Simulated scan of single mutants.
Amino acid sequence: MADILDRIRSTVLEAGEPAGAEDLLEVLHIEDARLAELSALAHEVRLKWCGDIVEVEGIISLKTGGCGEDCSFCSQSGLFNESPVRAVRLDVAELVEAAKQSSKNGATEFCIVAAVRGPDERLLDQVQDAIVAIERDVDINISASLGILTAEQAARLREMGVKRYNHNLETARSHFPQIVSTHDWLERQRTLELVRDNGMEICSGGIIGMGETLEQRVEFAQQLAAVEPCEVPINFLDPRPGTPLANYPVPTRGESLRAIAMFRFAMPRTILRFAGGRELSLGDDGTEAGLLGGMNAIIAGNYLTTLGRAAEKDLDMLDRLQLPLKVL
């Protein structure tokens, strides 16, 4: 049988087809001595099928904390009394300022996020007011992440001008009940179907390192590929105090690079965006390693409840690597 990287080169790099489950699993088992070779191949795939452009996104939490769901990784759940995160809500002026800062940081996309099961009318009204104000002052694409949607809510968001909607599947369907009990995986999948049906781009990813097996990581990647996302944000577990996963280990650098390559080989033509936890799992030069190992987008600055790298450091790095920024 041909070597795993030779098979990936033939199937994914040359033909542009996703690798099968057995090959994806073998990628996750590849030895440390071949990590550089693996990442180089993932980068070749990214360059051939996505180009060299890097897309930068800024995110802001419109409503932080106080969520009624029990997602085990999330410090914003109101059910975890020991979590230090408390409910906060921003006003429209603050959202506009955040969008302006994101644009200054090179972002072409600005995502409005709320910690809720799904939006109520008050929240949708506030998002609509924010979009009007942002579009008046900032040249940037607006996306949203407001939880589980109804058909009517999805249609309204599209009418507001939301271009891309984020709703993470989070993990493999087989592992999801160990992470969340207050809603099920199929509810999330149904929201993504509504997003597509209403003409918005799908953004859906998840978190590596929540106790899933390597087989479940492959399952997760293939389930994401099946919903045909425009963008897949990849997070690495940053264990949050007060949550059920607070004492879980941080994914190692090698584990993280294997996961990045595996996702690239599962979705050769998709935007793979660095999200939370990259600084912990990959170290200070980890963003560079990831962007030369299959990733092609980043979130600049801080995340929702955790600190990220300074946007200036990421922009300097992209300039050094001669990777051009996407522009509007």
Results as ranks from 00 to 15, higher is better:
49 W>Y: 05
91 D>C: 09
307 L>K: 15
145 S>K: 03
122 R>H: 11
194 L>Y: 10
295 M>F: 10
17 E>R: 14
145 S>G: 03
274 F>W: 15
242 G>M: 10
171 T>L: 05
171 T>V: 13
104 K>T: 10
264 R>T: 05
4 I>F: 06
124 L>D: 00
260 I>D: 01
275 A>T: 12
73 F>L: 10
224 L>I: 13
238 D>Q: 15
264 R>C: 05
213 T>D: 07
283 G>Q: 12
136 R>D: 12
300 A>Y: 09
295 M>Q: 06
59 I>S: 01
14 E>P: 00
285 D>F: 13
209 G>I: 06
134 I>E: 06
284 D>F: 11
270 T>C: 15
141 N>W: 12
36 A>V: 10
194 L>M: 12
102 S>M: 03
213 T>I: 08
215 E>N: 13
174 S>P: 03
153 Q>S: 02
192 L>V: 04
51 G>M: 02
287 T>I: 14
188 R>Q: 01
58 G>N: 04
210 M>D: 04
231 E>F: 11
18 P>M: 08
171 T>H: 00
121 E>P: 04
160 M>R: 05
303 Y>G: 06
251 P>S: 05
304 L>E: 13
42 A>Q: 07
55 E>F: 04
263 F>I: 10
269 R>D: 14
81 N>P: 00
259 A>F: 15
153 Q>G: 05
277 G>T: 11
101 Q>S: 11
149 L>P: 00
49 W>G: 01
299 I>W: 07
242 G>P: 06
251 P>Q: 07
108 T>E: 09
298 I>S: 10
36 A>P: 03
306 T>L: 11
37 E>S: 02
283 G>Y: 12
150 T>H: 05
282 L>M: 14
161 G>M: 00
163 K>T: 13
299 I>V: 14
82 E>K: 15
257 L>R: 06
277 G>C: 08
225 A>S: 07
16 G>L: 07
165 Y>I: 03
2 A>T: 12
57 E>D: 11
154 A>L: 04
43 H>M: 00
217 R>E: 08
142 I>M: 09
41 L>I: 02
261 A>S: 11
222 Q>R: 13
218 V>Y: 06
191 T>E: 02
162 V>H: 00
110 F>R: 04
151 A>R: 13
137 D>R: 14
269 R>C: 06
34 R>M: 02
137 D>K: 14
108 T>S: 15
141 N>D: 15
54 V>C: 03
270 T>F: 09
176 F>M: 03
112 I>E: 06
122 R>W: 10
268 P>K: 11
293 G>K: 09
209 G>R: 00
193 E>H: 08
65 G>D: 07
324 P>H: 00
195 V>D: 03
92 V>Y: 11
225 A>W: 03
114 A>T: 13
12 V>W: 04
283 G>V: 09
5 L>M: 00
237 L>K: 08
167 H>D: 01
109 E>S: 15
53 I>G: 01
109 E>M: 14
278 R>F: 14
156 R>T: 01
